[in-house]
Design a protein around this nucleic acid. Structure first.
Lengths: 234, 234
DNA sequence: GCCGCTCTTTGATCCGGATCAAAGAGTTGG
DNA sequence: CCAACTCTTTGATCCGGATCAAAGAGCGGC
């Protein structure tokens, strides 16, 4: 009913294989929603009534503990589907996706999931791969958290962000959305103080250029070395 | 060809809905394999040529880093499918499942995955849910690693093991497979020394009864309190 | 342009838990 | 029943990074 323009999503790999009618049908069930910076698409613990696709912008997915501690479990990039709790046999959302930049999402009611899967078998495969990749990233981060010190962990996190959201500039590669020291701390399991100190040190060595909610990486290779350096120097 | 007895798997929820012929067809493509204690079903990094179902026993899935550090990513319990890298768009196995107890697994060649999915749509749903649960567990552990101190983390890990592999006994609930202090350390991101100290303290308080590769939990509730205690005492 | 806010930087101190070291305790095989 | 492992316990020391504290710095609003 909303009548989302098919051209908005035509370029996404997920929909590449659909014909005009299928795409129209798909979009007829959906709604478009703008999410201003700082606003959450939904809240952790709420009943999962919709699932989503990010068109533009960037979302940070956070989880909070009972005592108010927060971590960033992942970043949602344009083209990613998210909030499909239904497929995971959940009735509520496990985290809160907050707009780090002005964002635009497509929403479907959860009831549509089964119908969509049936119409687009490719969607099921895609969803499975998506979850699979997230699982691998989660395991990688777990291993990092368990075995590495803070500096290599931060280097890994920054390299991942560059790979997922890097934008080439003359001076280096910029992380293409606003990210604070606090955010980086919540992604690596440390404090903003420690992140700040490390980034200052990197900046002194010319590896990165910092700034308020900004980060520009000048020497990717050097970061890679830091990321791989083992804590055992022997 | 191998002719696995259908009665072996009939009780598993995964196969409940199949009729006799479907089950026979399914098993005709599979092989049965015994895995003695300490042996790996496959090795991290090997090309994924098969996927598996654990019938009996228990497997610890480990990942090693370049510099030889190891962590336990998860434990595979009877009835779980594992090693289905194909579904995740991987060509090699991301971890090494080692038998913690004498185990029995069913193996299918990866080529069978697509055929099986087609014949048992339920299998796809099941696989998706399985990965979904693992993802949630991974995120939970990430949050714990990032925000909690060692003692609550260990308590959470033990409680999870009890839920997944607990066996009621007169004196409490036993973790139903051999698990060492080193294993617990690799599950919680600490050292065997610290695990040993904490378990000793718990034993002194009557919460658990330890032993060589053994653990019996007497007071689940008290462990729950430890697990939830916030590091901030204010 | 100046005020107030949020975010970042840097210094000083402290502590949880890693590391180093070595002695118990079960278990297996000869 | 003893020897040789492997696994666990416990003590002593040390240090990475958390915590506490406070001073910059960029940015938006009026």
């Amino acid at each position: 009913m909303a009548g989302i323009d098919p051209s908005l999503v035509r370029s996404l790999p997920l929909f590449q294989k659909l014909n005009e009618d299928e795409l129209k049908n798909l979009l007829s069930r959906a709604m478009l929603r703008r999410v201003p910076v700082g606003e959450a698409v939904f809240e952790q613990g709420q009943p999962a009534t919709q699932f989503f696709l990010l068109l533009h912008g960037r979302l940070k997915v956070t989880q909070v503990t009972a005592d108010g501690q927060q971590i960033i479990v992942r970043v949602v990039h344009p083209g990613d589907i998210f909030g499909f709790a239904k497929a995971l046999q959940r009735t509520d959302y496990p985290g809160t996706p907050t707009a780090a930049a002005e964002s635009l999402v497509i929403c479907w009611p959860t009831e549509s999931w089964d119908i969509l899967i049936e119409q687009i078998p490719h969607l099921a495969v895609n969803a499975m791969q998506t979850i699979g990749q997230r699982l691998q990233e989660a395991h990688t981060r777990l291993r990092e958290m368990a075995t590495e010190e803070v500096e290599p962990r931060l280097a890994h996190a920054v390299l991942r962000l560059i790979k997922q959201a890097g934008k080439k500039e003359s001076a280096g590669i910029r992380i293409d959305f606003p990210i604070s020291r606090q955010d980086l701390a919540e992604m690596t399991g440390t404090t903003l103080h420690t992140v700040s100190r490390i980034l200052s040190a990197w900046e002194a060595q010319g590896l990165v250029i910092g700034g308020r909610r900004k980060l520009l990486v000048c020497d990717t290779a050097a970061l890679g070395v830091i990321a791989e350096k083992s804590s055992a120097s022997k």
